[in-house]
Design a binder for these strands. Structure first.
Lengths: 345, 345
DNA sequence: GTCTTCGTGGGTAACGTTTTACAGAAATGT
DNA sequence: ACATTTCTGTAAAACGTTACCCACGAAGAC
């Protein structure tokens, strides 16, 4: 006689095996599409699974094999650019058995460490770190434990793959666009950075370098003017205030991110100036905000969707073969000119 | 002689126990702050944990007890209002041992089911569902399996707690504000809804009812005018186009969400009209976008942070006592008047 | 006709933690 | 001084799945 078993116990692989009159091993093999299972067995087991509504227990799987879970860490949910990356990521993974789980937005190395640890504790099969600010040693420690792809950060490492945009070119795109329009006094609002690792690897730092190089290449070295704040709306506001207070005001501002441009537009409006008549403004990331008609912000498109899709592909590859050499994918940005930039008066 | 053990094996509770010269049970008790452990034992074990850098394996925990993980499902990462809720949530949980993990944005019942199942499979200790559109039966099925709090949905259920804003009042706040300014032809852009469950429970539907009631209460029943689209930027754009094409144009538009207002502003600008001179616009959610000075959108603040914080508290309560009666928290919205609304000309 | 090989299925031991049950020591009550 | 309770600590059995190894029969090779 069968034991009645408590009413709301979850169906396990044992129940399926009994119902299909096979061993648990057989069921497990079917679940994992493992080698050595006949078509007859396939259908028998699959039918039992369907009839019982069985779903594998991820915790138990995690103890022996994989969890079929991929962890994604991003610094800030508010930045719509990251949503594009996520779309690319999830679309690419939607055909697979993997489920994406996001860490809550985290700013600061401490929070990043907390989230990455939490994901490792939960035996994630792979991790995608979007624009992490953590020290390189920490990233490598994570990558040593679990297959990892780092997105939006330039330094290479033999232990993890990277997908990034060519921010050097991106910075130059904006400068050349503005210079072509006839601007000379082109200022830049950057994210202040002192850590040498990050100065060499973070996109914001590379964009600033791209700005400098392009200014020099266009013979505008004397007009290089940088406000060093943060990549936030507040930072854009403060940065623009600084720049507008210069003895000779810039005629164009290149904000390192659309969210920064948003703050800059705010400060410019407050100062009673018009865009683009009095001053041109360009952003970076081509978010929906930039496309918004009343704003119509010239921006740089990073193809976030492709970044995410590529990151997912690399991660799946690496999960399949942890020892393959690390790959670096670099995508090319494109300029999207809109009404916020115009020739200087 | 100790077995050397493979180089990069993770530290387990057994290692800690051996290092501290106690049983694994003792270590487990310390980890869980369980009853029956002396101060001496405490310090001895904690020191061993620190020295070895031990971290509990969540998968193994999940098999026997809790996973210390809370799953949050939200429909759309792009809506900044949800970010506020998340902030309240994570702040409230930051002192606890619980880790929040987010499902990727999901639109549609199928995707919601996929995400909720994935979270149940992963033995989450609790779940917070933000503005779910799934049928009530599905929500109750989830809640029957795991402690659940439903946010931003009005229907009550004995199986789950809810936190929502008083959208009926919110809709009225906007109508009264506009009517006080002297508007009569106040139109509304709503999210089209046919499912009877959702018509009774979704915030968008309640806001529309609030709009109707308030219009009637102000004697403006004849001016009720609703464009039924979706709560997206595109929906706002199309809705406003419809309204602007009326034989007698409304003098004010109440968009059901800021993101909708964004689309409406777009359509209005395209039609060559000015805000607020030609037409007033009000949104809902008081996102950072509304506060953005060049836009300065009148909106309704839902206190997203408080919503999130309350949801977290309710969930912790319910995890502690699964059988306590379900609670419903309703918060009051406030109007934030800005420059996008003004008396009609 | 025997000896391999191959394809298929099952038994069993992990995986790392918590829970249950229990034993011994210490403290308390009479 | 003895009986009783309280406090600490341990051993052992789960939890659900997968990995490893072995057994069996059928097909192929000689």
């Amino acid at each position: 006689m069968e034991k009645p078993s408590s009413p709301s116990r979850r169906i396990t692989i044992v129940d399926v095996a009994r119902h299909a009159q096979v061993s648990t091993t057989a069921v497990s093999k079917v679940l994992r599409n493992a080698y050595g299972v006949s078509p007859t067995m396939q259908t028998k087991v699959r039918q039992a699974i369907a009839e019982l509504g069985y779903r594998p227990n991820a915790a138990a799987r995690g103890m022996r094999g994989q969890t079929y879970t991929i962890g994604v860490m991003l610094p800030n949910i508010r930045n719509p650019f990251f949503a594009q990356i996520l779309d690319g990521l999830t679309d690419q993974l939607s055909d697979t058995d993997y489920q994406v789980l996001l860490g809550p937005g985290c700013n600061g190395e401490a929070e990043e460490a907390r989230v990455t640890h939490a994901m490792i504790d939960r035996s994630m099969d792979g991790m995608i770190l979007i624009a992490p600010i953590s020290a390189r040693t920490h990233l490598e420690a994570v990558a040593a434990t679990v297959p990892t792809v780092v997105v939006g950060r330039h330094g290479h490492s033999p232990t993890y793959d990277t997908v990034a945009d060519d921010d050097l070119t991106g910075g130059a795109l904006v400068v050349n666009h503005l210079a072509d329009l006839g601007h000379q006094r082109i200022a830049h609002i950057e994210h202040h950075e002192t850590d040498p690792d990050r100065l060499a690897e973070m996109p914001n730092a590379i964009r600033a370098i791209g700005y400098r190089h392009a200014m020099q290449a266009r013979g505008l070295a004397d007009h290089i003017d940088i406000a060093s704040t943060t990549y936030t709306q507040e930072g854009g506001y403060l940065g623009a205030q600084q720049l507008l207070a210069r003895p000779t005001r810039p005629t164009a501002i290149f904000a390192g991110a659309d969210i920064v441009a948003m703050g800059a537009l705010d400060a410019i409006a407050e100062a009673g100036l018009r865009v683009p008549e009095d001053i041109s403004v360009a952003g970076y990331d081509n978010t929906t905000f930039a496309a918004f008609r009343p704003i119509s912000l010239t921006s740089v498109d990073q193809a976030g969707y492709q970044i995410g899709a590529n990151a997912a592909r690399l991660l799946l590859d690496r999960i399949a073969d942890r020892n393959r050499p690390a790959a670096q994918i670099k995508l090319s940005p494109t300029l999207v000119p809109r009404r916020s930039t115009a020739p200087p008066r």
